[in-house]
Amino acid sequence: MAEHSEAPHVVGGVDTHKDLHVAAVVDHQDRVLGVESFPTTRHGYRLMLTWMRSFDDLQRIGIECSGSYGAGLLRYMQAAGVEVLEVTAPDKHDRRRRGKNDHFDAESAAHAAFAERHTVTPRSRDGMVESLRVLRVCRKTAVQARRIALQMIQTTIVCAPDRLRDPLRQMTRMQLIRTLAAWRPDLTAYREVEEAYRISLKSLARRYLELHDEIADLDDMIKAIVKDLAPVLLEQTAIGLNSAAQLLLTAGDNPERLRPEASFAALCGVSPVPASSGKTVRHRLNRGGDRLNRGGDRAANSAIHIIAIGRLRLDPRTQAYVAKRIAAGNSKLEAIRSLKRYIAREVFGIIIRRQNQINQSQIAA
């Protein structure tokens, strides 16, 4: 192993930006060999990889922001068979000492990748989980836009002339939307207040209906992907479509990077950490995530909390478990904390087994 570690090689680091990536290379003794800039195009990625390999055997690359500006570079390097690490945080001491510019950031990424500190294995972004993520982001913005459209309809009706407002008072939401969408205002009379209100309300109602249909279509696609990725997950008590989708996103297309499963629990913010003092011996939830995500995944934590509360209401085994923990002297919150940890273990096991099945079927094909 010592001879292998001393073999000549180089390690790359990349500071990513929208239009230009800055790359640095260090040798097997962590000395900077060069810094260069490349465009954020496929041709630029190819030039970067060729440039890095021109120094020596390229062992790995550290990339900042692999989930945003560096996503394209990540996919290219993974397709080229290069080991990629995501650099999660710059060295604050080094930044205070040297200052900040793109060259320093690229060198810091290379040093971090060389030492494998402040680095994690990034999510791969070439599978169905990435498709699920993109569709859920689109759905979230559509839901927000639909909510805004409804709020604007309600606000506009409050200010509308009485002749328009009075017939709309007793309608349900969808009755109101469909009534407004069916209006036929005089588009040539937009200078008149009443017609301007009619045009505005009709436009907002049609916008709401279009977004409503868009969200329904996205829901069908998201449900189909979740069923393909983890049908067993949806069969478990109190695990709904949204919770299952979020936990799949947290695990990613390559959940094996989170082994052991305690890393997944820590990422979800449900791993226990000691919180004892004096004669009191207890644990609390680790809200800070782990080395894979310093801030933790709040959405995953919320999904596991929803599952836990649902099982407390619906699952006799969960009710018996919590009652047992309370009888043993734990508070209800501590019992729920333990329950969340078990849910994280259960979910991760299901996701890993399904991922192994998908990988085996791909190999067989």
Rank of each mutant, 00 (worst) to 15 (best):
I157F: 09
H9S: 14
Q78V: 13
I336L: 06
A328F: 15
D126V: 00
A189Y: 12
K100M: 11
L20F: 13
T179N: 02
V134T: 15
A344L: 01
S276D: 15
A24N: 08
L209N: 08
G329P: 06
M77Q: 06
Y45N: 14
V273W: 04
L49S: 07
V143T: 06
R298L: 04
P122I: 00
D228E: 14
L58I: 08
R184E: 10
L312G: 13
K202H: 09
D297G: 09
F55N: 05
L176K: 08
R98A: 10
F55V: 09
Q59W: 14
G44D: 05
L233A: 00
E83L: 14
K279M: 07
G240I: 02
D315M: 00
E86F: 14
Y208G: 01
R95D: 02
V87S: 07
R287H: 10
H28W: 14
L292W: 11
I351W: 08
I352L: 12
E130P: 05
A251D: 04
A364S: 03
M48E: 12
L132A: 05
V158I: 12
L49H: 12
T121S: 12
N356C: 11
P316T: 05
L74H: 13
V26S: 06
Y208N: 07
C65I: 15
L33K: 09
G67Q: 07
S203F: 03
Y208W: 11
V32T: 09
L233K: 00
S66Y: 03
R206H: 06
Q362C: 03
I326K: 08
L135R: 05
T188V: 08
A251S: 06
L47S: 15
L49C: 08
V281L: 14
D105E: 01
L339C: 07
I307V: 13
L85E: 06
Q29K: 04
L187P: 00
E261Q: 11
G295M: 01
E192C: 03
G295S: 03
A106L: 00
L164R: 02
A110W: 13
A106C: 02
I239P: 01
T88N: 01
K332S: 13
L248P: 00
L258S: 00
I352D: 07
H9M: 13
T155L: 11
A109W: 07
T141H: 13
D102N: 01
A327V: 14
I199V: 10
A266E: 10
C159R: 11
W51M: 06
A320G: 08
E261R: 12
D56A: 12
A142M: 02
V87N: 03
A327C: 13
V143E: 02
V193W: 11
I148H: 15
H118C: 02
R133C: 08
G127E: 04
D102G: 02
H103L: 06
G12V: 05
A344T: 01
D219Q: 09
R117G: 03
I153G: 08
W51G: 07
W183C: 11
L73T: 11
T250A: 03
A323M: 01
E116T: 12
H111P: 10
S108Y: 09
E256F: 05
G278H: 07
G295N: 04
R60D: 10
M171L: 15
H21E: 14
D102Y: 06
E6R: 11
A7V: 04
P316Y: 02
P260V: 06
I61Q: 03
R60Y: 10
R294A: 15
H212T: 10
V35H: 02
I352Y: 07
R147C: 04
